[in-house]
Structure formats: C-alpha cells, structure tokens
Design a protein around this nucleic acid. Structure first.
Lengths: 114, 114
DNA sequence: CCTCTATATAAGTAATTGCTTATATAGTAA
DNA sequence: TTACTATATAAGCAATTACTTATATAGAGG
C-alpha cells in the first residue's frame, strides 16, 4: 500500500463521508466482504431508505461500486479510489466487522448467490 | 507508530471533526508546528471568531492542547490522543502545509516568542 | 489601578444533514 | 403480460453546522 497525496478539499470530503457512524460501519463491512442493501439493513438495524441514501453518498463519491447479482444489488469497496490508502488505514482501526458479518452468516441472514 | 483500535463512534467523531476543510487545515499546520490563533486567521483568511470556534471543537475532542505564551495562546497537536496514529496517517496525505507556514515566516507574519 | 491586545463566547441565521413516510423503478419469474 | 422483490428516489422536517456581528474575558504592561 503506497503513500498518496490528495487535495485538502477532496480529503475533507472523504473524511466527512466517513465521519458518520452508519457510513463508517458500511465501509468497515465492505472492507471485509461485499454486501447487499438488505444485509446492511440487518447489520445496522436501520430502515432500507436510510441505508440506500447513505450508500448513494458513498457511491457518488466513488468510494464504493455496485453490481447486480440476481435480485440483489451488491456493493463493494472501490480499491482504485485515490483515497483508498487512507480509507484503509482508517478502517484498520475498527476491530469487529468480520465478527459481525460472521454472526450474520451464523443466523443464516447472509445473501449468497453465485 | 503503532496500530491502535477505537470504538466506531469515537472514530466517527474524530473523522467528522477532520471532515471540514478549515479544521483539517488547522490540524495539518499543527502537525508541522505549534501555532497561535492569529496565525490561523492569516493562513486561512477567516475571521477570528470562526477560527476560535473550530479550535474549541478540536480542543473539546482533545485533539489539540493549548498553552499561553505571553499575549498569545498557542495550540499544538495532542500526540497522546488515542486517534493520533490515524490522524497522523490522514495528515500525511496533505503535502504543502510546511511550505505555507514557511511563506508566513517569509512575510514576517509568524509569532515568535521564546 | 487602567488600558490594550489576543482570544473566547453568545446570539442569530442560512444551509446542510439524516432521518421519516410514501412512492417509483428495475429486474425476476410465473 | 402481470405480480413480486429489492432497491432507489422524493418530499418533508427536526437537528446540527458554520458562519456572522457584538460583546466578554484574561493576561500583559504602563
């Protein structure tokens, strides 16, 4: 992972997006694995429109990418983003996202479609 | 510099504070050197109360510390903050803060008191 | 003491945010 | 086609934000 340089305004915009617990959580889960909207609704115990609106902000900033898989739309981290180095450093601070995704699996609430 | 772990809510709060261009700039200057309020007013071309209000937020979050030196109150980064590791990683993305402080020196606008 | 200077605080305000509820859309599958 | 499902969008609203102007405060120095 390499050192990058960013314009202050662009960096501030990324940090503002991550400076919300819901979006920070979303990014933290996506750093572990791609997820679809209904999984976030479960994980974060929030309404579907609220989740969709947060995802739109992350998508508009190109921090995440979406792809359809059958009925579901999956989101994944955009590792090509100029801020990805620092986003990754930030997400490293959050310890338990993998565990929470695993719990979702154990409750058979994960969407698997391959 | 060591890896740390933080609660999501605490990390989000720090990121929200840094997700503002003015405060991100302030932190970036402080990463280079301690500064007093009037220097930020010059560097950022903003009103003194606006700067003071941003500094209060950073101070309330303990991201910066203050100390009086004669007539002036100097701010410095709190390197003991639990988020300092990640704050440092974030500030590394911003290239030109040292240069801007040097320009302030060249225009004899820096406050020196020892 | 009084005055000056740097900084902090208070009050007010326009813009932004993050939700809500209701509705639209885009694929899937019969 | 029609019905169904997952997701997106729209409209509305209360809370928060980042300024503004005016004023208060605290320490320095006569």
């Amino acid at each position: 992972m390499e050192q990058t340089y960013m314009k202050k305004a662009d960096l501030a915009n990324v940090l503002k997006l991550l400076g919300d617990q819901t979006r920070l959580s979303v990014m933290s889960y996506l750093e572990e694995d791609e997820c679809c909207v209904c999984e976030f609704v479960e994980l974060l115990n929030m309404s579907q429109p609220a989740i969709s609106q947060h995802l739109r902000k992350l998508r508009d900033a190109k921090l995440v990418k979406e792809k359809r898989k059958g009925n579901w739309i999956f989101y994944e981290i955009n590792k090509g983003h100029e801020a990805y180095y620092v986003v990754h450093e930030i997400l490293k601070q959050i310890p338990d996202s993998k565990k929470e995704l695993d719990e979702l699996s154990n409750n058979n609430l994960r969407i698997i479609c391959d």
